[in-house]
Design a protein around this nucleic acid. Structure first.
Lengths: 227, 227
DNA sequence: CGGGCGCTTGATTTGAATCAAACTGGGTGG
DNA sequence: CCACCCAGTTTGATTCAAATCAAGCGCCCG
């Protein structure tokens, strides 16, 4: 069935870079151990990481956030297909929510993880890789957060988002999240995000077919803008 | 000699939580493989992570930063004794510098790391622990960066710094870094940092025997202020 | 003893938050 | 089917906080 195919495809892609002999077997083992769940937009999906479980996003988008004492929501991380949840057990103050409908997550019980890691070295490497990917994601975001002007922040953020999004390589970016989400991820007000995007449009950096359908006009310079 | 004692002590402390049978042997193995170097203030110490090497800070403080295109320096991470460097190979755009004189770093060649990990499972776990510690550090900092007012940012930052500093448990904090470093880590202007600290002092949150010697007046509420 | 760095404080400017309001499109219920 | 509604987005006006510009102070180090 469709779900099974997604699981296999994602894990296969994740293990593509490795030349491990047991890659095929590892994908099968992951597939067998995975419990796939489907989530609706704005639905809390804490259960996929409860009790030391580890989740792998198969489709859709997930946000990790916390609510500050002043009532502001702060989004710490945004996860797309292939990203892992729960590799670093985090405080209960953090929530995990599906951003889009039909968000699919494969989750693994801690014993399963331990068994899989023992059995397939390549899975151990996979988990390490995904953990370093999480570090890079956080560092990239810190770099964007640290920019001075709102225009720089929003611009840099959109560039990063494009890099991590399915239709990479093209100049298009379908925004999986709302202006509110962007604002709460960058620590800006919604109005400021909207204004920044309008300015980017006026400057000809991007064009918008609709509020969610962006297209970058210039050449892809994503990472360069991060320095 | 003194160096050897430091190495053994730090590694011993890092492995304290684990009940591994081979803990003593692991400390010895780490000790034998470590190449300890000493650094002066503001000295670039890129070589400890060059070529896939991994470093462990034994004493002093180290900053990881990059220079943005607008000339601003952005400090991404601050490392104290026990923290590891180079666990996640990062882009060449990042620099690593000793903050204080007599900064001591033990570094390990990649082959050594591989050998140690194979030989002592507890070392494999150590590296994983230190990697998750790095993730938590980044997340904590993102949380502080995301605060709205400069007062909140500086206050939260000082609290975090106290948690990670040797004389933890007391209300004292000897600032290992300058106002400039704090500013570049929080994305604020030096003057703003200075003003925020003055305000904290006026409000009676902290007292200052000298610009670097802080004492928190209220009870320790560090992590609570982060929500 | 001088110089420079780190820190602090003050005055002004600038950019983002806030307050306010209008517009859009998709979905619902009458 | 249409009116309505609502969440998401955009724009404008005002306020406020931090950057910037400017200058003085104390101190360590050469």
């Amino acid at each position: 069935m469709a779900n099974d195919e997604t699981v296999v495809r994602i894990f296969h892609e994740l293990l593509l870079e490795t030349n491990a002999a047991d890659r095929g077997a590892a994908v099968e083992a992951l597939h067998a151990a995975a419990k796939v769940t489907v989530w609706r937009r704005d639905q809390p999906c804490h259960s996929v990481v409860a009790g030391g479980r580890v989740g792998c996003l198969l489709a859709g988008v997930v946000r990790r956030y916390c609510i500050r004492s002043d009532g502001h929501r702060q989004i710490l991380d945004l996860l797309v297909a292939g990203d892992f949840l729960g590799l670093v057990p985090s405080s209960a103050a953090f929530s995990v929510e599906a951003v889009s409908n039909d968000t699919r997550i494969a989750s693994f019980r801690p014993e399963e993880i331990a068994r899989l890691v023992d059995l397939h070295p390549v899975i151990s490497q996979l988990l390490r890789d995904r953990l370093t990917a999480a570090v890079r994601r956080l560092e990239d975001h810190l770099l964007v957060q640290g920019r001075i002007t709102a225009l720089d922040k929003v611009g840099g953020y959109l560039m990063l988002l494009r890099e991590r999004t399915p239709q990479s390589g093209t100049n298009r970016l379908f925004l999986p999240i709302s202006r509110y989400d962007i604002a709460d991820h960058l620590g800006l007000a919604v109005e400021t995000v909207s204004r920044a995007m309008t300015t980017l449009r006026r400057y000809g950096v991007i064009s918008m077919a609709s509020p969610r359908e962006l297209e970058f006009q210039g050449p892809a310079v994503a990472r360069d803008l991060l320095t």
